[in-house]
Amino acid sequence: MARIGYARCSSEDQSLEVQVDRLRSEGCQPIRSEKISGVSRDGRTELAAILDFIREGDELVVLRADRLGRDTRDVLNIVHELDQRGAYLTVLDPHISTRGEPGRIVLTVLGMVAQMERRFIRERQREGIAKAKLEGVYKGGKRRVDRDQVFALHQTGKGPAAIARALGCSRMQVYRILGHGAAA
């Protein structure tokens, strides 16, 4: 029986150190971690790897339920997948285990709270942006892809997939930029 730790934070500028240290102190080995949003399971390769190799009797350990996911359905689907493999989930803070039915009920409620918290965060963000726009100080999000490079590569005959590979972004970002450029 293995205690497999999973740590996640949403952005590159956040630290996983506290989570990893706590998981290590709880005897987790191995510990997988990643910096990616918990909004969905898309792109969460470390979590996918754990779910692929977890075996009967193993335990997936996370510091808090929201580290597993911000969507109640995703969290419950993960618990279901663990059940299918004969494994279980333990949340350290507050201590909850899916070995028994009471833990499943509490986990469901915590998942709902995490989802509600995410909605509140988005609402506060929208309110802050609206206020900043009214005050004339809103500059928008930081651009992750150089639009001029996308147009330059497109002019040389490269397609969206080649541009995305060259710039390290998604094809969808390239399509959005090219679509906006064509409309302008």
Results as ranks from 00 to 15, higher is better:
R64N: 11
A161F: 03
L47I: 13
L167I: 04
Q173Y: 03
V106N: 09
V137T: 12
E123Q: 12
H80N: 12
S10W: 01
K158L: 15
K133H: 05
V106D: 09
G38L: 03
R104Q: 09
Y88A: 05
C169W: 08
A65L: 15
R165F: 05
P94N: 11
C169S: 13
A161Q: 11
A48H: 06
S33I: 08
V113Q: 10
F151Y: 12
L178Q: 05
L89R: 04
L178E: 01
E34L: 13
T45Q: 15
R119T: 12
V79Y: 02
R8S: 04
G86E: 04
N77L: 10
T156Y: 02
T108M: 12
K139R: 15
A7P: 04
Q84F: 01
G141T: 01
I177F: 01
R118L: 06
Y138T: 00
A49W: 13
G86P: 00
E127L: 06
Q173H: 15
V137N: 07
A166C: 10
T98S: 15
L110W: 12
R70L: 10
M172G: 10
G141P: 00
Y175W: 13
S11M: 07
T45Y: 13
P102Q: 13
C169N: 02
A114S: 09
E34D: 14
D83N: 15
L47C: 08
V109Y: 09
K142N: 09
G103D: 10
M1D: 14
V75F: 03
C9G: 05
R118K: 11
N77I: 02
V91A: 09
N77E: 14
S33R: 14
D146H: 08
A166S: 13
R143A: 11
G5K: 06
A87E: 00
I105P: 05
I78Q: 02
R176M: 02
G168Q: 08
E17W: 04
R122E: 11
V75Y: 02
V39P: 01
L153N: 00
A182T: 10
E117M: 12
E127P: 02
H154M: 04
G140I: 01
G5A: 11
T45S: 14
F151S: 09
Q29M: 12
G157I: 00
R126I: 13
D66L: 08
L68A: 05
G179F: 05
K158Y: 05
V109Q: 06
E12V: 08
G43Q: 06
R118Y: 07
R24L: 14
S37R: 00
N77T: 09
Q84V: 09
I36N: 07
S40K: 03
R67Y: 07
Q29C: 13
V20Y: 05
V79A: 09
D13L: 03
D148G: 11
L178Y: 01
S10G: 07
D71H: 14
L60I: 12
V145R: 03
E34Y: 15
P94A: 07
Q125M: 14
I50A: 07
S11R: 10
S15G: 02
